[in-house]
Nucleic acid binder design. Structure first.
Lengths: 207, 207
DNA sequence: TTTTTTAAGTTAACAGCGTTAACTATCGTG
DNA sequence: CACGATAGTTAACGCTGTTAACTTAAAAAA
């Protein structure tokens, strides 16, 4: 199956990822990718419709790698939903910090660049959120979490993690704050917010 | 004090904000700003060192407007830390959704564009976080919140809000999820995560 | 009043960007 | 041996942020 055509496609994707990690999204261009692999810029257009489509392919690969690492956590903590959720949160944040520029492309691209993101790729990306929703549902079943709607709660938990990663990536967290303490606090706060409360305070209804 | 020089500076800032709101950050250029106010592009460089400096001025104005709206909440709920924090969260998210492109410039600019952000402007921006930290400290004093380090907890709360705003702005929240339900869930989860727990679970230490 | 200096703004240009159209060279097949 | 397809190229268009050099008008100094 793999001929020289698919090899070049692979070469383009690898070069893009490499340049992305080294020089960042801002300093990346079709011409630079081409120069790195020894082809002219227009050759890339023989394998990807445009720059957006090239990044869509890269995003999809990233989503799949993220899923692999989250799924490993999922199976490791199959019997402990709270600890599983905590580990999923850690893994998600670690993924973002390991390759910040890649994370940025995956989750911070402008909606106008995502309008034509293929439905099949979108469904694959959503599997990541499903792992979080599954942990919440298991937690509710076991009575160790209190959540009204697991899909909504999974999204709000994701929002907390996404905010944590993006603030760190954008270097917006105060220099006096230890990053590890910040991450731990963010995860704990999100987790505590999902635990059942003993005496319900009327001012604070269930999530 | 205001002469024609400072007037033109004001004109540039207003035109930039207007174009930002209408066409977004991606479709904004020095030439377009200049065209809108009837000057040549290089005239802008007589009032701002470069594009970054122009946006730094815009960010600073945004941070001050945010502070005004948060400070109003601060005084309104002076005696109820939990309700005050909830209202601060609502106000912050509303601010982001009211002018998404402006929020993006304020909080999502690449660190390389913020390297030369002036210290005085940075201090003004941090006052916004101080209002959150104050609410947490008041809550701890009154025994209605449990927080180890108010600065860290204020940052992790901010992260949850920032994630909520950015996911909505980037249109990454699943179409099947109601935005209002998502926002409420995110705020509630962050808030619950700060409340004191009756029986401490050894698996979940304090934030 | 005349000259000189300063201020405000302009035009032209540079290197780089994503993308398209037109062109060339190579290769497998009829 | 010719032909059509395939893979890749060059040239070009209209953008971008930014700099240098230039003009024009007003203010200050002679």
């Amino acid at each position: 199956m793999p001929n020289s055509t698919t090899d070049l496609r692979r070469l383009i994707l690898d070069a893009t990822r490499s340049l992305l990690a080294r020089n960042g999204y801002t300093n990346l261009s079709m011409r630079k990718i081409a120069r790195k692999i020894g082809y002219s810029a227009t050759t890339i257009y023989l394998h990807f419709e445009n720059k957006d489509a090239l990044f869509h392919a890269l995003i999809d690969e990233g989503m799949n790698r993220l899923y692999e690492s989250l799924y490993e956590v999922h199976t490791q903590y199959a019997e402990a939903p709270v600890e599983r959720l905590r580990a999923l949160c850690r893994q998600y944040i670690q993924f973002g910090l390991d390759e910040p520029e890649y994370y940025e492309v995956m989750f911070m691209l402008h909606p106008e660049h995502m309008e034509r993101y293929p439905a099949a790729k979108y469904r694959r990306a959503r599997r990541n959120l499903d792992l979080f929703a599954q942990a919440l549902e298991d937690g509710v079943t076991e009575g160790v979490m209190a959540v009204q709607n697991s899909r909504v709660a999974a999204s709000s938990t994701w929002a907390a993690l996404h905010g944590t990663v993006t603030l760190l990536i954008a270097q917006r967290v105060d220099a006096r704050i230890d990053h590890e303490a910040f991450i731990t606090a963010a995860i704990d706060q999100a987790l505590y917010g999902l635990l059942p409360r003993v005496r319900a305070d009327p001012a604070v209804p269930e999530v």
